[in-house]
Design a protein around this nucleic acid. Sequence first.
DNA 1: AAGTGGTCTAGACCACGGG
DNA 2: CCGTGGTCTAGACCACTTC
Lengths: 239, 239
Amino acid sequence: MSGPKAKEHTFQRIKTIILDKINRQEWKPGDRIPGEEALAAEFQCARMTVHRAMRELSDMGIIERKRRAGTRVALRQRRPASIEIPRVDIEVIKLGYQYRYQLLTREIIVPTLQQQTMLALDPNKEALHIRCIHYANDAPWQLEERWINLNTVPNAANQSFEDSSPSNWMLENTPWTNAEHIISAINADSHHADLLQINERDALMSIQRKTWHEDTLLTQAHLVHPGRLYQLSASPSLG
Amino acid sequence: MSGPKAKEHTFQRIKTIILDKINRQEWKPGDRIPGEEALAAEFQCARMTVHRAMRELSDMGIIERKRRAGTRVALRQRRPASIEIPRVDIEVIKLGYQYRYQLLTREIIVPTLQQQTMLALDPNKEALHIRCIHYANDAPWQLEERWINLNTVPNAANQSFEDSSPSNWMLENTPWTNAEHIISAINADSHHADLLQINERDALMSIQRKTWHEDTLLTQAHLVHPGRLYQLSASPSLG
DNA sequence: AAGTGGTCTAGACCACGGG
DNA sequence: CCGTGGTCTAGACCACTTC
């Protein structure tokens, strides 16, 4: 019973072979590797097919390519990793817990000067400020504090956010083009301790997310998780 | 003074146009997008060129493609972000601090049973255990605790690690094929407080990294940063 | 069964940048 | 300069999956 011979694509086969040579140190960092035409001849395929394989290896950071100079095994092995920051409700359910959402406060106010500069909001303009908690099996999972720019997302003013969380609403109703995350570890203050039902000074994982459409800020969120419960995992984005 | 007309590649132009239509909600999530042949006719180019553009959009998670069913704007917008876990010495220098490294302990011992299972090390086999600190301007920046599998990385036994850190040595001398990172927030214990010159219970950012070559574990590292000083940033991997 | 995307080819011209 | 990679073409056949 030999397994069904899944036909491997030529470009994938070439990738695997090149990767293998690099991993076995047959080609060491800095070494020049044969050009596309030579490889195409060796693998009996079109140059485009080799090119596809090499481009993907280049995207992975395994090799470095320069015109005229040719292709070399990358010297400095990067550690780029892909991290998925998931929708909080989906994540909680996927872990087998029951998800619940609670709105704490919702107000349309003028941010303080400090917040204006931090959030890149217009001075003296009102913005929507929301605080809410996401629960997993009635245990606080994430505290969310969010500012929404009413200039760019005016519809948000009509939403009560009593039943559905602003993060989901934003994701589903507002197209965005860019986002930035800052991940850090902080100590819980008395406020955090109260809301998240933990002790003061407990370690918290903090995620600050800013979301833009083109060049205009849509929303800024500060997401805080109890450190004991929460972890992010990152793995290399492989080809 | 119109800028120099940098020639934009056709596939890139197509990507931009499609992305723009999606961002402008002209094509909404779930909508079907014209097929490759239709787009090729519209853009007056070969189908392969359209395919390249669409494949990259698909890799970005913007669209979803299925044979026969066609291409649709992705319903569930993913938030994959790219995070770079840098070499500690390079990062410290890049921030403008002076880098210093100090070895604390280095011993070849048999891991405890708990460590054996955690590290996937062979039972009753010796492994190299290292503890060291990385400083930025004489302030502790990162505490590193590392196990190295001597079956797969025998050369490590000959390294003193007194002058250069094991993480750099591993990166430069040992090819690896896969890695996994777990990021969490923890409270400092008395040990941490002592070594990192902080207070007990201060928040720490913990990064646990396992590195493999094919299916064999090479090394496992626990990297701990004072939370006040350290933050990771993640941004979408754009095309 | 038929329409869609996925791969591949054998050429071509172009752009970059090291020799 | 000129070798190398980068893109593009106009076709072809194949694989998948829904109609």
